[in-house]
């Protein structure tokens, strides 16, 4: 599903070179639930950005779903993001001026899908996170947990091959976080590959694998013996 081989990401300024990722290699199989952990500044977010094709890398090779995406142009990367990747962000990143229906609709609009099909998908996605009845509400009218559920619905509505989650429970209380994790496990159980960046060691144990990053490199890659879902 995801193969990163010898990826390097260097940020350059006039005076400083920062190696965010060094010879970074990671293979994720289809259907896996992988957590990425590591201290602040270790390269987790850089990895997430590269895995999600949000940024380009300096050298190395990245194969996603059998396609080498290492040197795709901006337009093609946007299309791959739209069709194959679902994003869940720590601060939800919902559009405050759009109601839930329109928020979930955002990625589908960029796919050129017909309105009737979009409506079916949006309602199904909102229903799957238990918020269909509130489709006309604004994000500000929801709790943090509900907003993250909307963000999950938005990530799922395009039926992506894998989800990238950036600290999805970071802004939630423990009870709400637990509910979101249950939802992610259900999604994973249904066949969607998930890569989740987290600071929380307890969440790292709830995945199939935990990859620990330190100084831009994979320090450890452990299979968890606890069943993910």
């Amino acid at each position: 599903m995801l193969k990163m081989n010898q990826i390097n990401k260097v940020f350059r300024t006039e005076v400083v070179e920062t190696h965010a990722l060094r010879n970074f290699s990671l293979h994720v199989q289809e259907g896996e639930f992988v957590t990425i952990t590591g201290p602040s500044g270790c390269g987790k977010t850089t990895f997430l950005n590269l895995a999600g094709l949000l940024e380009t890398f300096t050298s190395g090779q990245y194969v996603l779903d059998g396609e080498d995406v290492s040197r795709l142009g901006d337009y093609q990367r946007a299309k791959v993001r739209n069709e194959k990747i679902g994003f869940i962000f720590q601060s939800f990143n919902l559009m405050p001026d759009l109601n839930l229906f329109d928020n979930v609709d955002v990625p589908l609009r960029y796919r050129g899908m017909r309105a009737a099909e979009r409506k079916l998908r949006i309602e199904k996605a909102l229903d799957s996170v238990g918020l269909l009845s509130r489709k006309n509400h604004l994000p500000s009218q929801l709790s943090g947990g509900q907003q993250q559920r909307v963000a999950i619905a938005r990530a799922l509505v395009g039926e992506p091959r894998f989800l990238l989650a950036d600290e999805p429970t970071g802004n939630l209380d423990s009870n709400t976080a637990s509910g979101v994790m249950e939802l992610l496990h259900e999604i994973n159980a249904a066949g969607t590959t998930i890569i989740m960046v987290t600071h929380d060691p307890s969440l790292a144990t709830q995945s199939h694998r935990n990859v620990h990053i330190l100084d831009g490199q994979v320090q450890s890659d452990n299979t968890n013996h606890v069943k993910a879902a």
Partner: peptide
């Protein structure tokens, strides 16, 4: 700006 970045992340191309 963040909304635009999010739209881009969700698949919006520059022409979009």
């Amino acid at each position: 700006r963040k909304q635009i970045g999010t739209r881009r992340a969700l698949g919006a191309t520059r022409p979009d």
